[in-house]
Simulated scan of single mutants.
Amino acid sequence: MSQTTVCTIATFTADDLLRHLPELGALLRACVHDGASVGFVMPCDVEESEGFWRGKVLPSMRAGGLVLLVARQGETIAGTVQLDYDTMPNQQHRAEVRKLLVHPGFRRQGIARALMTELERHASALQRNLLTLDTRTGDHAEPLYTELGYRTAGVIPGYARGTHTHEFDATTIMFKAL
């Protein structure tokens, strides 16, 4: 049973990202060090984690194709999620959920659920009625997505290298119609 906590969720601008770059980098590192399968492997240092936000997320935000939501407890960044809606003309009805991150010290408090609920609200406002995501098969996030109404489209074996190992993990592709 998860405990619900009070957090505030903000939609970050590109300027907000730059102002909070060290905190966002620290959040990513904490999640990777805790084993999160979010594209990085150990060791994950400051340069790599901040480089992700600066080099991958920031350009998409500036181009107008990505929403970055940030959950805070007090002044501390506790979690983030991204809504990527930079799609081809024949896919203007869908978007992708990317990089749901909750700091290990803030897990099991309802933050991931709150971020996902707000993400879906943004998707609806953008007239995106189909969301997709991928998650490591068997990861602790998979049951959350199922509880939120996401359905499994399939499982791809050997999809990505483990965060702490050289073995390859399967990924589950999921979707939800809004």
Rank of each mutant, 00 (worst) to 15 (best):
R136K: 12
E120W: 07
L100N: 02
Y85W: 12
Q92R: 13
H140M: 14
G105F: 10
G65Q: 03
R72D: 01
R121N: 12
A95R: 00
R94E: 02
A141Q: 09
G65W: 04
L101H: 00
D84H: 12
G65P: 01
N129Y: 15
T117V: 12
A123G: 04
M116R: 00
R62S: 10
A125V: 10
D45Y: 07
T132C: 11
L83A: 06
N90C: 11
P89Q: 03
V46P: 07
G55K: 11
K56N: 15
L131I: 00
Q109H: 11
T135V: 15
A78H: 07
G105D: 14
A114P: 04
D84N: 13
V57K: 06
T135F: 05
A78R: 00
E142T: 07
L126E: 03
E142N: 05
D45E: 11
P89H: 08
E47T: 13
I77M: 06
Q91H: 13
D134T: 09
L126Y: 07
A141D: 08
G138W: 00
H93E: 03
R121V: 10
L130Y: 11
D86G: 14
Q127V: 12
P143S: 04
A125Y: 04
A112P: 02
H122E: 12
R108H: 14
A141T: 08
K99W: 13
Q73Y: 11
R54W: 10
S60Q: 15
G105W: 10
L119Q: 02
M88I: 12
G105Y: 10
A123D: 02
M116G: 06
H103M: 04
M116D: 07
E47H: 11
K56E: 15
M88D: 13
R54H: 13
Q73R: 14
A112N: 01
Q73E: 15
R136F: 01
V81A: 09
G64Q: 05
L101P: 03
E47V: 14
F52S: 08
R72T: 10
S60A: 15
I111P: 05
A78I: 04
E50R: 12
G110S: 09
E47A: 15
L101S: 03
S60D: 14
L130S: 09
A123C: 08
G64H: 05
L68A: 12
D139V: 07
Q73A: 11
T117W: 07
V81Q: 07
T76L: 12
P59V: 00
R54G: 03
T137K: 08
H103K: 08
R108S: 13
Q91S: 12
V81N: 02
E48I: 14
T132F: 11
P59S: 02
T87D: 07
L130E: 10
E118Y: 06
L126M: 07
A114H: 08
K56W: 14
L131N: 00
Q91A: 14
P89F: 01
T117C: 11
L115A: 00
M88N: 13
K56F: 15
R108V: 07
T76I: 13
H103T: 06
G51N: 05
D139Y: 05
H122A: 08
S49A: 15
T135S: 10
Q82M: 09
M116I: 03
L115H: 06
Q82A: 05
L126C: 05
V81P: 03
L58E: 04
Y85G: 01
G105I: 09
R108E: 11
T137G: 09
N90Q: 11
E47W: 09
T135K: 00
E96R: 14
T135R: 04
E120F: 04
T76A: 15
S60N: 13
D84G: 01
A112G: 15
